[in-house]
């Protein structure tokens, strides 16, 4: 979906954990049209059953819950640090007083991006091993700057 169909990460997550039709029907028309097409075209990619998955990549991290939230997922953020876990207590064991703690809604992806780094599938993944490690070493100073959090 990302590489061949050039779908943005957010929409690929929506295809895997699709919003309910009843939710789509209540969306503004432009968004509803988009989600109707995403569901109809990528319906076979929809994941059923309980899951909470975390996917790390060179440019950031995605956490995704199943579409009716059968598994727990909690996210927290302090400055440029984003954490996800199945329980808030696990987060607080590592980071006792985060600035924000929230429970993402079913199927709402938590996407943390390292500022200045694009989604790697279109770029970094095609770099040679040496270039990839260069790219990774570039993460830390960038992290100090800021993290975009899309919920």
């Amino acid at each position: 979906m990302l590489r061949r169909h050039k779908l943005p990460l957010e929409l690929a997550c929506k295809a895997l954990a699709a919003p309910l039709w009843s939710e789509i029907d209540r969306m503004p028309e432009q968004e509803a049209a988009l989600m109707r097409s995403v569901r109809a075209v990528y319906g076979p990619a929809m994941l059923n059953g309980p899951f909470a998955i975390v996917l790390g990549f060179n440019g950031g991290m995605v956490a995704l819950n199943d579409r009716i939230k059968l598994r727990p997922l909690v996210a927290a953020r302090s400055g440029s640090l984003v954490m996800v876990a199945s329980e808030e207590s696990a987060i607080r064991a590592v980071m006792p007083s985060p600035e924000h703690v929230w429970a993402p809604k079913a199927g709402e992806p938590v996407i943390a991006r390292v500022k200045g780094m694009d989604w790697p599938i279109h770029g970094d993944l095609h770099l040679g091993p040496a270039e990839v490690s260069c790219a990774v070493t570039g993460v830390e100073p960038a992290c100090e700057e800021a993290v975009e959090v899309a919920v």
């Binding site: 957010e10 049209a33 988009l34």
Partner: peptide, 10 residues
């Protein structure tokens, strides 16, 4: 956010 490109979609 995103929207359907011109002429795209179902």
């Amino acid at each position: 956010g995103y929207r359907l490109a011109e002429g795209a979609g179902m």
